[in-house]
Design a protein around this nucleic acid. Structure first.
Lengths: 224, 224
DNA sequence: AACGATTAGATTGTATTTATTTTAATACAA
DNA sequence: TTGTATTAAAATAAATACAATCTAATCGTT
């Protein structure tokens, strides 16, 4: 019996996607800074591919809001003004409210368990002082909520809104004094889901989000 | 005095954008139907360009939600299921509510005049039986509202949500019996802005949107 | 006739080449 | 020194060429 027929090993990804993911990560982590030029030839040689997949990846970054292209001049990492941040937050606020209401109605027991676990993971991470891990577990916590909303279109849009500010948020999370507040808010969110209290949850999410505004705004202001 | 220094004639557009606009229009108007394959070579010869700008345009359509690519198999016009429609509407509902509240607070007098003019143009269009014109003037009416919200990020996201359902909505607008209702709703919207009544506006927009659901749902159901 | 292997053609993925445009560097004139 | 032309270099835009993969038709076998 020919066992282990687990072929179909779809580890294939078009180079454009590999490049896209690489550049996206680099931008979000701040390795590529806002305003920095994305020169095709340079990136191509650096990543060891031709310019074609680079160009396609740039088109994707562009529509993700992470890059801006000026025809015949090239692309650069998108800059955000304070106004941009304000605008994105306004949108995220509305979408988070929707997500949390949907999630409140649709969250399964298994997902609620998952959420509590994610909460725990985040709490643990804050004790490690590993910023990267803290950011990731925080995102994971919110991912559980978004997934529970059972609305992939919503998740897509929220994610693209998140991305636009996450590269500024890294700085925010570097400050350990905010951990306790974040943990407290996460706990309240759990409590809200436990009680299935939509209005309460909307309020908490709003606070949770707006708390980040000023910190991120600082970062943007500095880097001007 | 050298007058008429209106050079700067930026009538240049990269081919990728020309192709993108062309394909986008074709999809929204139903010339390219959901599920239809987007073969690079075919499109390239048809539009008289090489495959490079076609590929870039497809990447853009993809992130706009109008096309779906399967690696090594190619792209096709995105299909929408009833669930997808439901999901998009849920999002649009939330974003429209946000837009209308922002617009209510920020709309200038000039913009309010513009809105009333757009209303008039729509009313005129419904008498022409020219479906294309009707759709356009209806969109223009809503564009005024969205622009008044003074939040470009929000406008972007709403537009991409609109696009995803607009290609199904054409059918809805073909039915003249809905015109009077649409006109009535538009009038109420104007009234809402006149009174600056946020809650009223949110309600109207919600009704205005959900009225389209069933019609669009019909269309999707049929075409299966 | 039904099924599977083989192969030809079509299609996408990637790289390379060519053309156009912009940037900047240099030279010249005011 | 400043401003304008001119030229050279570098970058993007688009087209073409090549490679890898998939699809579907064909053929042979059962």
């Amino acid at each position: 019996m020919t066992e282990n027929l687990t072929l179909q090993m779809d580890d294939y990804l078009p180079l454009r996607d590999v490049v896209f993911n690489t550049l996206r990560e680099a931008i979000l982590k701040g390795e590529l800074k806002p305003g920095e030029r994305l020169m095709e030839m340079h990136l191509a040689t650096k990543l060891g591919v031709s310019r074609t997949p680079i160009r396609e990846a740039i088109r994707m970054l562009e529509h993700e809001g992470l890059a801006v292209t000026i025809p015949r001049k090239g692309a650069q990492v998108a800059k955000m003004t304070e106004k941009d941040l304000q605008d994105v937050l306004e949108v995220r606020d509305a979408l988070d409210a929707l997500a949390v209401v949907c999630a409140c109605r649709r969250m399964t027991d298994a997902q609620f368990v998952e959420l509590k676990e994610a909460m725990k993971a985040f709490e643990d991470a804050t004790r490690t002082e590993d910023v990267r891990k803290i950011v990731e577990t925080d995102e994971a916590f919110h991912d559980v909520i978004y997934a529970s909303a059972e609305n992939p279109k919503l998740v897509n849009i929220i994610n693209s809104a998140r991305e636009q500010m996450y590269r500024y948020r890294y700085e925010y999370v570097k400050n350990p004094s905010v951990y306790s507040q974040l943990i407290a808010e996460h706990k309240q969110i759990i409590e809200g889901f436990d009680r299935r209290d939509e209005e309460f949850l909307k309020g908490i999410m709003h606070v949770h989000l707006t708390n980040q505004i000023n910190a991120v705004r600082e970062v943007i202001r500095e880097q001007k």
